[in-house]
Amino acid sequence: MNLKKNILTALLLAIGFILHQLVPGALGSMKFDIMLSVIFVSIFINSEFKNAVLTALLGGIITALTTTFPGGQLPNIIDKLVTCMVVFAMVKIAEKIKFNKISAGIIAFVGTIVSGSVFLYSALLIVGLPAPFGALFIGIVLPTAVTNIFVTVAVYGAVNMALKMSNFSLARQ
């Protein structure tokens, strides 16, 4: 793996950590998971399988450490691993067509739905839910999915602009 790309992934995850800390717990102590946006951007800019796994593990650990959901540590790690694999597959498919901001937004929406569903289901099995599954899905997951479309596209655009201005090459090395 390319060290520069790994450093960029680490910087994005640090930004995601800060954003995740700023978002308060909402319905049933669940947070809007804005960390997903930077995880998605990390996979968009470095679409290697190793990076997807590394990003999933680090993102899962960071969100597990900052969760406000009672017993949400393990479900956070599970959901990030599953979500990153799904997003990685979607990015590979989108690269064959033509990856752009629209596909980034669609992947962010679907990825957030996958993440929220996996988190809620694994939390239900492991520790139980503080509110009904449907209420948490409608009250937290769907609004987060819509929000993450815009956050992901904005962060992706900003990162691409910064990379372009710094002459950073995303080509395989």
Rank of each mutant, 00 (worst) to 15 (best):
N2W: 12
L3H: 11
N6Y: 15
L8I: 08
T9G: 12
T9K: 14
T9C: 12
L11Q: 02
I15S: 11
I15L: 15
G16P: 09
I18L: 04
L19D: 10
H20S: 11
Q21P: 04
L22C: 08
L22D: 05
V23C: 07
G25C: 11
G25T: 13
A26R: 14
A26I: 15
A26W: 15
L27T: 06
L27Y: 14
G28K: 07
G28A: 10
S29Q: 15
M30R: 12
K31V: 13
D33S: 09
I34V: 15
F40S: 04
V41A: 01
S42M: 08
S42T: 14
S42Y: 10
I43L: 10
F44R: 00
F44D: 01
N46D: 15
N46S: 15
K50M: 09
T55L: 00
T55Y: 00
T55Q: 00
A56L: 05
L57V: 07
L57T: 05
G59E: 07
G60M: 10
I61A: 10
I61N: 04
I61Q: 04
I62E: 03
I62S: 06
T63W: 06
T63H: 02
A64K: 06
A64R: 02
L65W: 12
L65P: 09
T66P: 01
T66M: 07
Q73F: 12
L74N: 08
P75G: 02
I77E: 00
I78H: 01
D79W: 08
K80W: 12
C84M: 03
V86Q: 03
V87S: 04
V87E: 00
F88H: 08
A89N: 05
M90R: 05
I93L: 13
E95H: 06
K96H: 10
K96Y: 07
K96I: 08
K98H: 14
F99G: 01
F99E: 11
F99T: 12
K101C: 11
S103M: 11
G105T: 02
I106H: 08
I106C: 04
I107V: 07
A108P: 04
A108K: 02
F109V: 02
G111S: 05
G111T: 04
T112V: 02
V114F: 04
V114T: 09
V114R: 03
V114M: 01
G116Y: 02
L120D: 02
Y121Q: 08
Y121E: 06
S122T: 12
S122G: 02
A123K: 08
L124P: 10
L125P: 07
L125A: 13
I126E: 07
V127N: 15
G128K: 07
P130C: 09
P132T: 05
F133H: 06
G134M: 15
L136I: 06
L136H: 05
P143R: 00
P143V: 01
T144Q: 09
A145Y: 09
A145G: 11
A145P: 13
T147R: 07
N148Q: 03
F150D: 00
V151C: 03
V151N: 01
T152M: 06
V153Y: 03
V153E: 02
A154F: 10
V155K: 05
Y156A: 12
A158T: 11
V159I: 08
N160M: 11
N160R: 13
N160A: 09
M161D: 12
A162Q: 05
A162F: 13
L163K: 04
L163S: 05
K164Q: 11
M165A: 14
S166M: 11
N167W: 09
F168C: 01
Q173R: 15
